[in-house]
C-alpha cells in the first residue's frame, strides 16, 4: 500500500509559484493513483475563488486546472473554515467541491496521513 500524502496549499493563486507547485504535485500523484489529499489553508483558499480571469498574467489557468483534480483521482479536497471565514469566502461559492474543516477536523486529517507537505 502506497503511503498517503497530505498536501497543504497555503499560498494565494497569483502571488508566486507555490500554489501551482502544490497543484502539480497533486495532479502527478493522482495520475499514478497515489492516495493524495489536498488541504487549502490560509491564503491558499483564495485559489478556490470563482471567476478568476488570469488571462493578462500569461500563466496557466490555475482555477481551470484545479477542477481537473477529481478526474486525476484526487477527490479528497479540504479547506480550513477559519481561513475561508476570515477571507470572506462562502462555502457555496467555491469552484471546487471541498470539505470544510474546523480545527478538530484539521487535526484528524493531518493525523490520518503518512506524510505531509506544506507549500
Amino acid at each position: 500500500m502506497a503511503r498517503s500524502l497530505l498536501i497543504v496549499s497555503r499560498q494565494a493563486p497569483w502571488s508566486g509559484p507555490h500554489a501551482r507547485e502544490a497543484l502539480d504535485m497533486a495532479l502527478a500523484g493522482g495520475a499514478y493513483d497515489l492516495p493524495i489529499a489536498l488541504l487549502f489553508l490560509d491564503d491558499g483558499v483564495f485559489q478556490l475563488q470563482r471567476g478568476q480571469q488570469p488571462g493578462a498574467l500569461e500563466q496557466k489557468d490555475l482555477g481551470a486546472n484545479l477542477q481537473a483534480l477529481p478526474l486525476f483521482g484526487v477527490e479528497s479536497l479540504y479547506a480550513c473554515r477559519h481561513s475561508l471565514q476570515t477571507r470572506g469566502l462562502a462555502e457555496d461559492t467555491l469552484l471546487l467541491p471541498v470539505q470544510v474543516l474546523d480545527a478538530p477536523g484539521l487535526r484528524e486529517l493531518l493525523d490520518a496521513h503518512d506524510e505531509v507537505v506544506t507549500i
Binding site: 497555503r10 490560509d42 480550513c80 477559519h82 481561513s83 480545527a103 487535526r107 493531518l110 493525523d111
Partner: peptide
C-alpha cells in the same frame, strides 16, 4: 506571518 497561528490550529 500566519504560519504560527495556523500551525497551532492543526497541532495534535
Amino acid at each position: 506571518d500566519e504560519r504560527f497561528a495556523s500551525c497551532l490550529r492543526l497541532l495534535g
